[in-house]
Design a protein around this nucleic acid. Structure first.
Lengths: 206, 206
DNA sequence: ATCTACAGACCAACTAGTCGGTCTGTGACA
DNA sequence: TGTCACAGACCGACTAGTTGGTCTGTAGAT
C-alpha cells in the first residue's frame, strides 16, 4: 500500500510548479509525468508518493489555481470597496484595478489554467470540474451583488441581464487570453478589459 | 513511399468528421488516431493514406474550420450590408444576426476548434498557427472597416481603441464558449453576445 | 497492367503507474 | 547521551499497455 502524502514538501512544491508551467504551455493531456519530473528535478517515486494518479496532480493544480484566483477577486474587490461607498463606483474601480494588474498577472501566467480542464473533457474527474465551476460562480456572485446594488440608482441596469453582465468579466478575461495567444500580442488582455470597463461606465452614466 | 492523397473520398470525410467531433470534445492531444479510426469506421491504412502525420490531420481540421468560419463572417456581413447603407447599423445588424444564429451554431459545434490549437502549443506546426491567426485577422479587419466608417458620423467611437473593439467579437465569442462549457449552460453564448451588441449600440447612439 | 483507395498486422517508442529499497529524521527509553 | 524502532520522503529500474507510424498486401476502376 503506497503512502500518499498531501503535506507540502520541497519536492511536492517543485512538481506543482513545474506542472503548472508545462500545463499552461502545452495543456494537460500533452504534459507527461516524465516531463514534469525532468523539469522539477524529481523522481517517479517522489511523484507517486505525493499524487496517486496524474489526474490527482491536475486536481491539486486546479485547487491551487482556484484559491489564488479567488484571492485576486477578494483583494481587488476589497480595494475597490475601500475607495468608495457607491456600488457602481466600486465596480468600475474594481474593473480598473483589475485591468491595471493585468500586466503583472501576465508576467507570471501567460494564460489561464482552467482552460485546459474546461476544454480537455474527461481528463480530470468531476471534482475538478466542480472546483472550476466554483471559481466562476464566486466571480459571478461577487460582481452580481454590486450590479444589483448599483441598479437601485442606475435605472438603465434594470433592463439588462445582470447575471450575464457579471459573467462578462470571466468571458472577456478568458477570451482575451486566447486572443493574446493567437495574435502573440499580450497587450490584448488589457485592451479587451478596457472595453468591458467602458461598457459598464456607460451603463452607469445616468 | 506511401502515397498521400488530398482528394476528398468517403473515408477521408468520415475521418475528418470523427476527428472534429473528438477534438472538440477532448482536445487534440487527448484524441488518439485509433479513437478517430474507431469512430470513423476506417482503418490505419486509410488514415495514413490521406494524412502523413497526426499533425497533418490537425492542420486539415483547422483549415476546414477556418474556411467555414470565414464563410460565416462573410455571410452574416453580407446580410447586414443588404439591410442598410449606414455602417453603424450594418455592424449592429451583423452582431444581432450572429447572436440569433448562435443556437444553431451551438447545436453543431459545442465549442471552438481553434481553442485546442491555441492552448496546446507545439502539437501543431507553425503553419497551423498561421491559419488560426488568419481567421482572427479576417474578423478584425472586416469589423474594423465598419467601425472606421461608423466613426465618421459617431464621434464617441473616435476616442476608442477600435482595433480592440473589433477583436472583442472574437474575445466574447471564445470566452462565452468557455463559460458555457464551465457552467454547462449553452445559453451563455447568446447572452454574452447580447451584451457586446448592447455596448456597440450605446457607442453608436449619438 | 497500373494506380488509387483502403485493409490490418506489426513495430519501436513512449506512458502512467508499480515496487522493492535507501536515507534522514524523530521520539522513546536506557 | 546513545541507540533503537519506526515513519515518511524519495529513488529509479521495471512493466503492461498505448501511441503514432510503417509495411505488405489487395480489390476495383481505368
Amino acid at each position: 500500500m503506497p503512502t500518499v502524502s498531501t503535506r507540502p514538501t520541497p519536492a511536492r512544491e517543485r512538481i506543482l510548479d513545474a506542472a503548472r508551467r508545462l500545463v499552461l504551455e502545452h495543456g494537460f493531456a500533452a504534459t507527461t509525468v516524465d516531463a514534469v519530473l525532468a523539469d522539477a528535478g524529481a523522481s517517479k517515486g517522489a511523484f507517486f508518493h505525493h499524487f496517486p494518479t496524474k489526474a490527482a496532480l491536475g486536481r491539486a493544480l486546479v485547487e491551487q489555481y482556484a484559491r489564488a484566483d479567488e484571492h485576486v477577486l477578494e483583494e481587488h474587490m476589497a480595494a475597490a470597496e475601500a475607495g468608495s461607498d457607491d456600488a457602481a463606483e466600486q465596480l468600475i474601480a474594481f474593473l480598473r484595478g483589475f485591468e491595471e494588474a493585468t500586466d503583472d498577472i501576465l508576467a507570471v501566467q501567460p494564460s489561464c489554467l482552467f482552460v485546459s480542464f474546461i476544454y480537455e473533457t474527461e481528463l480530470a474527474d468531476a471534482e475538478t470540474d466542480g472546483i472550476v465551476l466554483g471559481s466562476v460562480m464566486a466571480w459571478r456572485h461577487r460582481i452580481l451583488a454590486k450590479l444589483n446594488e448599483a441598479a437601485k440608482s442606475h435605472p438603465r441596469l434594470r433592463e439588462l441581464d445582470l447575471t450575464a453582465l457579471a459573467d462578462q468579466v470571466f468571458t472577456v478575461f478568458e477570451g482575451a487570453f486566447l486572443l493574446a495567444r493567437a495574435t502573440g500580442d499580450p497587450s490584448a488582455v488589457r485592451r479587451q478589459l478596457a472595453h468591458l470597463r467602458r461598457y459598464v461606465e456607460l451603463l452607469c452614466s445616468d
